[in-house]
């Protein structure tokens, strides 16, 4: 990819409920032929370089919260719901039972005090576009008082089932994606946190 294209990479903003686009959202590369060893034409390559424009909708507060060091979940407060009081992380906009819009709740303190690894996996491989260091230590974190078990990744140490962990947040240069949330073993000093992350 050319430097010029990198600088002019497509960006989007919203004004009056409409997307305003700036820069290049795709780059056209010429296709190339594919031959077999005998020189027979088998096909062609079709290069694609595109940038998608994606709305977080009412989940945006969660991703914005990470950039400010806050872990948000949602809670059903519908008095008529059989499962009133259930707390969800991953953050859900609507209660999966009564479909009423849920209340946003701050789970940061509960996560710091009670989170533990329910299960984990150390993965040696990744797919294209991965931005995390390998091996990736996938962890599923249970926070007391919630109905679900959040997927995330451990930044330091070796994971084990039952291990107490605390959340860390990419508050410097956030990406506004789920990778802005990570975890470290309980008791990790601030000085050991990865660049850009804070408690």
């Amino acid at each position: 990819m050319s430097c010029a294209h990198e600088q002019n990479r497509g960006k989007a903003s919203v004004d009056n409920n409409r997307y305003k686009l700036k820069g290049e959202f795709h780059v056209a590369y010429p296709n190339t032929p594919i031959f077999n060893k005998q020189g027979k034409l088998c096909g062609v390559t079709n290069p694609r370089d595109m940038t998608y424009i994606h709305s977080y909708g009412a989940e945006a507060p969660f991703f914005e919260g990470l950039s400010k060091g806050v872990l948000k979940g949602t809670k059903c407060e519908n008095p008529d719901c059989e499962y009133k009081g259930s707390v969800y992380i991953p953050f859900r906009i609507y209660c999966p039972d009564c479909l009423k819009k849920m209340k946003i709740v701050d789970l940061t303190a509960a996560a710091k005090k009670t989170a533990f690894i329910y299960t984990y996996m150390v993965c040696e491989r990744s797919g294209a576009f991965n931005t995390l260091d390998k091996p990736i230590k996938f962890i599923n974190v249970k926070i007391e008082g919630t109905s679900t078990i959040l997927m995330s990744y451990l930044h330091l140490g070796e994971p084990s089932i039952g291990m107490r962990v605390v959340p860390i947040f990419r508050t410097k240069n956030p990406t506004y994606t789920i990778t802005d949330l990570s975890w470290v073993p309980q008791g990790t000093p601030k000085s050991k946190l990865p660049k850009g992350f804070s408690f």
Binding site: H54, Y56, E59, F63, P90, Y118, T119, Y120, M121, C123, R125, S126, G127, A128, F129, N130, T131, L132, I136, F138, I139, N140, M151, S152, Y153, I161, T177, I178, T179
Partner: peptide
Amino acid sequence: NHLISCAADKDWETPLGHIYTGYYAVMAQK
């Protein structure tokens, strides 16, 4: 691998390594 990982939740899972094996294998570990 990236394209397969798009069958996971694109906001909550796919950015985590773009590798479906990771989302699946936590279950195997348990």
